[in-house]
Design a protein around this nucleic acid. Structure first.
Lengths: 359, 359
DNA sequence: CCCGCCTCGGAATGCGATTTCCGGACCTGA
DNA sequence: TCAGGTCCGGAAATCGCATTCCGAGGCGGG
């Protein structure tokens, strides 16, 4: 399954400037031009089961090419009762985290012959709710939510209800990573990855940590913090309150947090763990601006292992999350019309690099 | 390949009564539940000009909420004769260049109440053509092409014709950056920026250059090369053939090119100009892996000034392109129903950073 | 008090497709 | 030659919604 339209597959496209102007050619136009009925034209153009005499096939195809006909997808959707779109909701496109996921999703979607429509929720729960509401109107085959949404009980319930109504009507819903709602979920092991990371870092000889995290309501951030803390806990290591700083979940936030840490006084802190790579990179840059050499004066670790992690100096220690594959899985899950809500776990993997040298 | 044949042939069955539950509520259902006619319900729900008695308004609204009604966008599109979607075609989502543009586009689109559907062409002209064809079927208000497409005369004409037919039918087309086709265009001054960059670098004392470029057919790359060459030409500086290497238009390509340069022998080359930042970053990393310190042993400059440019060490000298704004402009252009094809120039701006210290 | 105007609800029509249903042509075997 | 089956084309019904058109009341002015 895939491909877009069979019309283009059959005849070499003819170039002929449409004189008509204004209106797109409709199926009726094609039928008339070919001297057949609409039904026949439809049968030819959508590759229906029924056969049409070869002569008519040719005439319809020719007419369609001549008129530059493109089937009206909305009309098809209405007539067929189903569309071939999938909807993707992300928190932001600029963020490599989401664009990697989006890459996977679109790849899988196009392989399945689906068109993907994308919306950006900007980490606002209300916005996300509104988006889902609108998207539902398109009657997509699936809605994939990739947002690291802030957990607000009120809008969360509203969202759940909205999604439920959608699924009830035959759509499929896939959540990525952190939603604890009863839908298909691609679950990223944030807690486990962070915990492993903590262990590995202690193994390298680190003992005194600081942490850069996001808003408490952001589940992804929370899980990673908890995992990291618990990992340290295994060695009876704790992080003092003053070495935990909250910031925006992006590069700027990371920089701001690092400056704040410097202001408060690093006081022998050996390593800063930022809950995602973009923040970690922000931290490194801010440290350098403050005259500290990352990896040397103070180690830094992140989470996600986005592409740029290996472009910074020193290369960033992180936890690999196969984001592209997460997107692929999400789409597969969406397409498998499995009615029970399944959870596909995606494991994470610590990668130690130059930003956390052995002590 | 994969014709859509499968997709359309797959569900021959008529409207399915979903095992689990009900259809989506339709306007008729709402009207019935509210005890009014469909017309009245429609008038209430889409905010028509005509007034409806308050009592009926309330009843319709209540019924709609009760039934979890969402208007069927396709049906609306058909009835109204116009949709509220905009289509965006990019070469790849992972690339920060495109995701920045996409960010601008979606921002502007959502501000205008449009839903954006995105497709990825993977730098394949045929794929792009096919995508445009499919997208046209959605009858979007606008199609924005942001791909740095490879210039292949054949498919380019086909694309032009396709776009022309679309515009003829009332849609608006916006090209970003490098298409020399008669449509609205947001034009990035690649040539001028590169030329300025060359001048600035010579000003810093550089005399011996190497260049990392993409496939000749990629206009963006070509323009930047030409600009850079001409800029050097002003000072009677030339680049030997063996110091110009072609590579893929991405990070991997940059690394590969750098390795190739090292293999050929740098021979006193002072600075490597890569035609975009992701390649430049790849170049820096590869140099470092080869034991060369970027900015010290050999300077590096890029183009685009994407976010990560300031996260690498040393910070990358580049040419700023306001990508997000490019996206915004594109959308504005798309929405302004100006029938003459306009060109909105976007200027670029050299930023010198640590990767090109004064010699 | 009557008549026209204004307001508002409902039936009908149309949008661009798909699909069902029916009927005519052709084929085949008896 | 005729009955029965197969093949294929066309008329028409839908799909979910917007909108036009028409008619029924309510209202105020003459």
């Amino acid at each position: 399954m895939c491909g877009m339209d069979d019309a283009s597959a059959a005849p070499p496209r003819r170039r002929q400037k449409t004189v008509s102007g204004e209106r797109q050619a409709t199926l009726r136009d094609v039928a008339r031009a070919a001297g057949v009925s609409q039904a026949t034209a439809s049968r030819v153009l959508n590759g229906s089961i029924r056969n049409v005499r070869q002569e008519n096939v040719d005439r319809v195809l020719a007419a369609a090419a001549e008129l530059d006909y493109t089937p009206h997808l909305s009309a098809q959707a209405i007539a067929r009762g189903s569309t071939n779109t999938a909807a993707l909701v992300v928190s932001g496109v600029d963020d490599p985290y989401f664009s990697s996921i989006a890459g996977g999703v679109t790849e899988a979607a196009e392989a399945a012959g689906l068109i993907v429509t994308m919306a950006v929720a900007d980490r606002s729960p209300e916005r996300e709710l509104q988006i889902v509401r609108t998207l539902r109107g398109m009657r997509p085959r699936a809605i994939i939510l990739a947002g690291s949404r802030i957990d607000d009980p009120g809008t969360r319930d509203a969202l759940a209800q909205e999604l439920d109504a959608y699924r009830e009507a035959g759509g499929s819903v896939v959540l990525i990573s952190q939603h604890d709602l009863p839908f298909h979920t691609v679950s990223i092991d944030n807690y486990g990855g962070a915990r492993q990371l903590a262990r590995a870092l202690v193994g390298l000889g680190y003992r005194r940590f600081a942490m850069v995290r996001a808003h408490v309501g952001l589940k992804t951030s929370r899980d990673r913090c908890d995992g990291f803390m618990d990992g340290l806990g295994e060695f009876n290591i704790d992080i003092e309150e003053r070495f935990v700083v909250k910031a925006e979940f992006n590069r700027r936030g990371g920089s701001a947090a690092a400056r704040e840490l410097v202001r408060r006084g690093l006081d022998g802190t050996e390593l800063v763990f930022a809950v995602n790579d973009v923040m970690a990179i922000g931290v490194m840059t801010a440290f350098r601006d403050a005259g500290l050499v990352p990896g040397q004066d103070v180690a830094v670790a992140g989470f996600d292992d986005i592409g740029p992690a290996v472009d910074v100096v020193p290369e960033l220690t992180s936890v690999t999350v196969p984001l592209r594959r997460v997107g692929l899985h999400a789409m597969e899950l969406a397409l498998s019309d499995d009615h029970a809500s399944r959870i596909v776990p995606v494991s994470t993997n610590v990668v130690l690099r130059g930003s956390t040298p052995r002590r």
